[in-house]
C-alpha cells in the first residue's frame, strides 16, 4: 500500500494546536503575580476601563477586568472566584461579603452613586417633561429594566415604577435584561421602546435620556478588597482617590461620595 502524502504544513499546524492546548497549564507565576483581577458591575465597566488603562500606564502593571451583574459576581466570589477587588453596584452585596469575613478588614468603601435615566432610541418618542408617564403611551410596548432580583439598577427601577404608581399599569410591558448592559442593548437595538438604565451606559450613546425623578433608594456603589487579594490591590485602591479618576466617574454621570 502506498503511504498517503501528508498535506504540507500539517505537522506544523498540529504542533501549534498542541502547544496552544497545553500553554494554559504552564504556570506563569512571574506574570500572574503582577496582574490584578478586578470584578466590576456591568454599569461601571466602561468608566473602569478608562481608569484601568490610566492606572496601567502609570504603574506599569496589568489589570484583568471581569464584568457581570453584581448578583452573579457575588455568587462567584462566595464560590471562591480568584478576584482581588470587587466593584459592586450596591452596598448590600459588599456588606454581606464583609459579614462573611471574605474581605480585608475595613476595605469597604463607596466609590460612586448611580443614577437612573429613561432612555430611548426611537426618534418619535419625546422624553422631555414627561417623566415616567411616557411609559403609559400605547406606542410604548416594551420597557426594559434590569432583573430587579439580581441587578441593583433593576431594583432601583422597580422602586421608581412603584413609587410613581404606574407599576400595575405597565407591568405587562416589562422585559428583563440579565444585567444593566444587556438592558441597555435591548433599547439601543430598539427591541424595547424604552428602558430604565444606568446614566453611565448612555454616555456617548445615540438616543435620548432624561433622569428618573420618581423616588428610588440611592444606588450606593461600594467596592471591597477580597481576603486573599494581591498586595498590589492597595495601590489600585489608592489610585482611586486621585482627582483624574473622580473626573472619569463624574463624566459618566455618577455622583461622588461626600
Amino acid at each position: 500500500m502506498k503511504r498517503q502524502k501528508i498535506i504540507p504544513g500539517t505537522k506544523a499546524a498540529l504542533l501549534i494546536i498542541f502547544a496552544a492546548s497545553i500553554a494554559q497549564f504552564v504556570p506563569c507565576k512571574v506574570w500572574a503575580g503582577e496582574t490584578l483581577t478586578i470584578a466590576v458591575a456591568a454599569n461601571f465597566y466602561r468608566p473602569m476601563q478608562e481608569i484601568v488603562s490610566a492606572y496601567e500606564k502609570r504603574s506599569g502593571s496589568r489589570v484583568r477586568l471581569v464584568s457581570g451583574s453584581t448578583g452573579k459576581l457575588y455568587a462567584q466570589i462566595i464560590e471562591g472566584a480568584p478576584f482581588d477587588i470587587f466593584f459592586a453596584a450596591d452596598r448590600r452585596r459588599p456588606a454581606k461579603l464583609e459579614r462573611k469575613g471574605l474581605i480585608l478588614p475595613d476595605s469597604r468603601f463607596t466609590y460612586a452613586t448611580g443614577k437612573l435615566v429613561v432612555y430611548t432610541t426611537r426618534p418619535d418618542i419625546a422624553l422631555a417633561g414627561r417623566g415616567l408617564s411616557i411609559l403609559l403611551d400605547p406606542g410604548v410596548r416594551h420597557v426594559a429594566i434590569a432583573n430587579p432580583k439580581t441587578a441593583p439598577y433593576g431594583r432601583a427601577a422597580m422602586q421608581a415604577l412603584k413609587s410613581s404608581g404606574i407599576y400595575q399599569k405597565i407591568k405587562s410591558k416589562l422585559v428583563y435584561g440579565e444585567n444593566i448592559g444587556q438592558t441597555f442593548l435591548f433599547v439601543r437595538s430598539r427591541n424595547a421602546d424604552l428602558g430604565l438604565v444606568a446614566a453611565s451606559s448612555t454616555y456617548h450613546a445615540d438616543g435620548k435620556a432624561v433622569p428618573v425623578l420618581a423616588a428610588y433608594d440611592p444606588i450606593v456603589q461600594q467596592a471591597v478588597t477580597l481576603r486573599d487579594a494581591l498586595p498590589a490591590s492597595a495601590r489600585f485602591i489608592a489610585f482611586f482617590a486621585i482627582s483624574a479618576v473622580h473626573d472619569v466617574i463624574r463624566k459618566y454621570g455618577y455622583g461622588l461620595p461626600k
Binding site: T121, R122, R141, H142, V175, L185, F186, S189, R190, N191, A192
Partner: peptide, 28 residues
C-alpha cells in the same frame, strides 16, 4: 442571539418587516 437581536431589532428593515407581519417584536 446578539446577531438576531440586532438584525431583527426594530432598527433594521428585517425587523420592521417582521413586525408588520407578526404584529409583535421578534425579541421578547
Amino acid at each position: 442571539g446578539y446577531f438576531l437581536l440586532v438584525a431583527i431589532g426594530s432598527r433594521s428593515p428585517i425587523g420592521q418587516w417582521y413586525q408588520a407581519i407578526f404584529g409583535s417584536t421578534f425579541a421578547f
